[in-house]
Amino acid sequence: MQAVLQNTSRYLSGGRSGHLIVIGLLVVMFIVGAVLSDRFATSNNLLNVYEQSAGLAFVSLGQTLTILTGGIDLSVGSIISLVAMLTSGLINGNPAMVLPVVLFVLVLGTLIGVMNGAAVVVTGVHPLIVTLGTGAIVQGVALLYGLGPTGKVPLNFDTFAYGRIAGKISIGATIAIALFLLVWFILRYTRSGRYVYAVGDDPHAARLMALPHKRVLIGVYAASGFFAALTAVYLVSRFGVGQPYTGANYTLASITPVVVGGTMLAGGRGGVIGTLLGVYLVSLLNNVLNFMDVSSHFQLVVQGLVIILAVSVYVEKRRVA
C-alpha cells in the first residue's frame, strides 16, 4: 500500500515537470500572439479566450479521470447531445423548470456514467468498446427524442456561459477552475483519489491489495458522465438550445487536452492540472491561429500536429526515466 502511494506521488511530481512544458508552450504562444497583433495581448481578448475554454474544460476534466485509470470514455459526446436536448426540451422556456431540469440532467448524466462503469466492471470488455457501444445507444435515444433543435430556455439561462463577474471574469470558466482544483484536491489528498492512480498504474496489483477497484472504476465513469452533463448544460446556456449532435465533436476533443497535459493513455500517470493547462493551450492556439488568419481548415492540421508533438515528448521522457 505504502509503496503504491509512494510510486504514485513520484509520478505526480513527474507530471509537474510535464506542466513546465505546457506552460512553456503557453508562453511561446502568448509571445507569438502578441507579436502578431496589437489586439491579442489585450485583457478583452484574453478574457474571451478564458470564457470560451469552459466547455472543453468541463468535459476533459471527466475524461482525465477515466484515462488516469487506464480507460477512456468515448460516450461523452453522445451524453452531451442527449443531455443538451433534454435540458432545452424539458425546460421549454419555463423559468420555474430551470432548477429541477438542470438537477435532473446532471443526475441522469451521472447515472449513464455509472452504467458505463458497471458495464466495464461486469463484462471485462475494454472501456473503449464498452463506451463506444453505450455511446451509440445514448446517441440513438437522443435521436429518438428529437431529430433537430428541441425546446428553448429562458433568456437569463445564458448567465452560465456569458455571465461575467464584475463585467470581466467569465462565471462558467471560473466554475471550471474551481472544479479542477476540487478534483485535484480529491486526487491528491483523499484515499479514493490515490486509488484512482493505483488502479490505473497497475490494475493487477490494485486487485491483489484488495483496493476497491470496481468502485473506483464505476466512480470515474460516473464523474465523467456528470461532467459531460455539465458540459451539455453549459452548451445549452451558450447556444440557447440543444440538438442531437451538440456533443459530436467533444468525444475526441476531450482527449486532446488530457494527453497534451501529460496524462498517459496507459493510466496511472498525469493529473487534472495538466489537463487544465492543456485546455488553455488548445484555446489559446485556436485564438492565435485566428489572429494569424489561418483558415479553420489548417487549424485542424495544427491541432493534429500538436497531439503528435505532445505525445512524442512525453514518451521520450518516460524512456529516460
Partner: peptide
C-alpha cells in the same frame, strides 16, 4: 516513437481531415 495507436491514428485522422478541408 512508441505512441499509443489510439493517439497516433487519431492525430493522422485530424491532420488528414484538415488537409482535405484546406
Amino acid at each position: 516513437r512508441n505512441v499509443s495507436p489510439f493517439l497516433a491514428t487519431l492525430a493522422t485522422m485530424i491532420v488528414l481531415q484538415g488537409l482535405r478541408f484546406a
